[in-house]
Design a protein around this nucleic acid. Sequence first.
RNA 1: GGAGAGAUGGCCGAGCGGCUGAAGGCAACCGCCUGCUAAGCGGUUGUACUCCAAAAGGGUACCGAGGGUUCAAAUCCCUCUCUCUCCGCCA
Length: 424
Amino acid sequence: MLDAKLLRENPEAVKEAFRNRNQNIDVDAILAIDVERRKYITELELKKSAKNKLSEEIGKLKRDKKDAAELMAKVTAMNVEIAALETQAAEAGANFNEAMLVLPNIPDKSVPKGKDEKDNPEIKKSGEVPVFSFKPRPHWELGETLGMMDFERAVKISESRFVILKKYGAMLSRALINFMANTAVGRGYTEFYPPFLVKGKSMTASGQLPKFAEQAYKCAEDDLYLIPTSEVPLTNMHRDETIDEAALPFKYTGYSACFRREAGTYGKDMKGMIRVHQFDKVELFKFTAPENSFNELESMLLDAEEILKLLKLPYRVIQLCTGDMGFASAKTYDIEVCMPGLNCYKEISSCSNCTDFQARRANIKFKRKGGKGAEFVHTLNGSALAVGRTLAAVMENYQTDTGDVVVPEALRPYMNGMEKITRG
RNA sequence: GGAGAGAUGGCCGAGCGGCUGAAGGCAACCGCCUGCUAAGCGGUUGUACUCCAAAAGGGUACCGAGGGUUCAAAUCCCUCUCUCUCCGCCA
């Protein structure tokens, strides 16, 4: 959520930010709602103040055993007006809140302006793209012939966009999770295993609701949502809390399954496990003081890159331009891994600084030593990494001419020392 | 699932219809005092919203949440949530 004060005091900057995001948002309309809302609040409070004074006088009269009937009648009459104003104020307040909750974060000054993903500049490239003497196969072919994946039965049991991992596929996935989580812990992150079902309030705090409701799986009976990322429970770890400055930053990592409805993506990435309704992810998350958040974003990116480096997977880092950034983010780097079988790079991690956008929704503050009052923290999240896509990338990059898959050295300790996955 | 107990400020804890944003204590901060430390003395210390160009200063709301009774609710009534204890069931 944006600071309402920023909207009021610097509407032009906000308008420009939304323009840069390609968002057609009527800021003036929201400002008008705000004016109306405050008008009702002022009127209401004036009335209430007058009423409170009268009530006090009644108290005094009663104590002195004097007649207070006249004043009591007056207050009774005031209560009717107050009730009416209260309804109006609440309505205006709800309107304002509704409007504010769907406004995206303001892009940081360092974010390049652009329309869509075509305007995302490449920041760096790393690793050797493997050269094959044969036409590299996509991971789903390898997965099926090696008995690592079963797509048909996944459809039977669930529906399309689900995958069953089998034998060494399942094992490799588990190995990747352990490897990623251990690496994150080794780099100073505290490990969490969060709930996969969260309240609507938690989804609102991290920014998934109300705007992206159609992307989330909901258990309607319980007002519980399947998390689309462990960013959601991790953000909410400190909801409604005030943290001591000295304790910051918090660096958290959490493994979770992630569930996404992928509404509106029909026809995109239909094969394989690039875009599925359920996937695993090891997430990095930080709570920081505002002045440190952009540095912490850089180091989080390095933490995510480290996984790819250790796996010896070629990748590139791009920065998302203003038009391509996510709702809550002020600055985002995407890591794209090379997928030889698909002959392209695929997003495998996204590291974002959400500044105080989520903290404001989630009411997460910190107190400076000796400072007065509390300020909102900054929150950052990044994948390290999306497990399914990493699995696919490993298979495609490490395939051999015989259709086997070599196990990356970094994963062998997690695969009982296995060096190669072969048929049978 | 059954039976009880509870939810008050950073913490402990009083209050059970008006003068209570909330006694008292602890903690923290600022002064004074003091060879140092400790003790002692005095003062300060919640959040959100809102009015004011801003500061100063007003105002409104907040004692788990929501509703109700009343001129007036932390205090009375109803509903809900959460926590704890015991029994049952269960990975």
